[in-house]
């Protein structure tokens, strides 16, 4: 058990290290160096030289990688080419905003998805299930920029209930952020709920067909207790990892949602960074997103280990 957790941590770090290497190499392999790319037409003469000196581009790649990695280990992400500012101050507040957006959507969406998934499984192939499942297919297939656009025109333009485009300073106080994120959260939630609901449904259907649920019925238990105590925990266990994978996978969607709503988070920042050819910023953002992915998976793995008696007590059984 302890070994398993140690291994997961170890693997998470190795993964991040490899990702940092891949990100660094990928950027190196791109045509032109960071300064040429950023300066574009003006990449010549003194200006280019200055830029290269400032960002140490005249040193060999492995030296820069080591310097970069050392910086990362100390929490120094490097320096933005465009803004000539430490990247922490560029990314920090935007990362906070994205976290607020993502966590709100997850906090509202996951319980709703589990609830709907259980209902759909219990009413399998009945009208309610068909309705929930069809709606899920619909929302998981429509691109976020379409749902987002439609939500804006309905809730904001037509009804005038919620602000459409987010207009706020990057480091606005949290209260103000919450006042603005209604529609972006809704957009993210629709996709997320659809995906997770489908997983919970099919996992629940598997469990409902198992011997132990049949036995709990033949023991004389009430339907509520059968579902809540016997079926649901066993249906959710295998789903935890999938939910984490899914949330991580939906991060790509955050990128689009932030652009649609003009929301100042790391998603929109990465699109801008790439459009600006600000490679140090891109590298830092890629690594940050990879860490979110790795972190989520790590949490899910450990949660599964702790919640699943079969894994938790393997050691105990062996003794």
């Amino acid at each position: 058990m302890l070994r398993l957790i140690t291994f997961r941590f170890l693997f998470a770090f190795v993964t991040l290290w490899v990702v940092s290497l891949v990100v660094f190499i990928a950027v190196e392999l791109l045509p032109g160096d960071a300064c040429e790319a950023f300066l574009g037409q003006m990449a010549q003469g003194q200006r280019l030289d200055n830029c290269r000196v400032e960002h140490r581009l005249n040193e060999p790649a492995y030296v820069r990688y080591i310097a970069w990695a050392q910086g990362l280990a100390q929490g120094d992400l490097g320096k933005s080419i465009k803004r000539s500012k430490p990247l922490e101050s560029v990314i920090g507040p935007r990362f906070r905003n994205t976290l607020i957006l993502g966590l709100t959507a997850a906090a509202l969406g996951i319980p709703l998805a589990i609830f709907l998934g259980v209902l759909a499984a219990l009413w399998r192939d009945k009208k309610a299930d068909l309705f929930i499942s069809s709606a899920a297919i619909f929302f998981m297939t429509i691109p976020e920029f379409i749902t987002g656009t439609l939500l804006i025109s309905f809730f904001s333009v037509y009804l005038g209930w919620l602000p459409g485009i987010v207009i706020m300073r990057v480091d606005a106080p949290i209260i103000e952020v919450f006042g603005q994120i209604g529609l972006p959260v809704l957009t993210l939630m629709l996709v997320m709920v659809a995906h997770i609901m489908r997983m919970v449904r099919s996992s629940m259907i598997d469990v409902l067909a198992s011997d132990f649920v049949m036995m709990s019925e033949l023991k004389g238990l009430s339907k509520t207790r059968q579902v809540l105590r016997h079926a649901l925990p066993n249906a959710l266990l295998p789903a935890i990892n999938l939910i984490a994978l899914n949330i991580a996978w939906l991060m790509g969607g955050v990128l689009v949602v932030e652009v649609v709503f003009n929301y100042p988070g790391i998603g929109r920042l990465s699109v801008n960074a790439i459009a600006d050819r600000d490679f140090p910023l891109v590298q830092a953002l890629a690594l940050l997103m990879a860490s979110i992915y790795v972190g989520l998976n790590l949490m899910a793995d450990i949660a599964t280990l702790l919640l699943n008696p079969k894994l938790r007590t393997r050691q105990g059984a062996a003794q």
């Binding site: 132990f212 036995m215 033949l218 004389g220 016997h230 066993n234 079969k310």
Partner: peptide, 27 residues
Amino acid sequence: QQLRGGAMALIPQNAGQALTPTLKIAV
């Protein structure tokens, strides 16, 4: 439901699969 598990009780084919894996025997 009062009868099942009460006056008439089933002993299942494969008890390993008929006991809920996430609940202690006591429960």
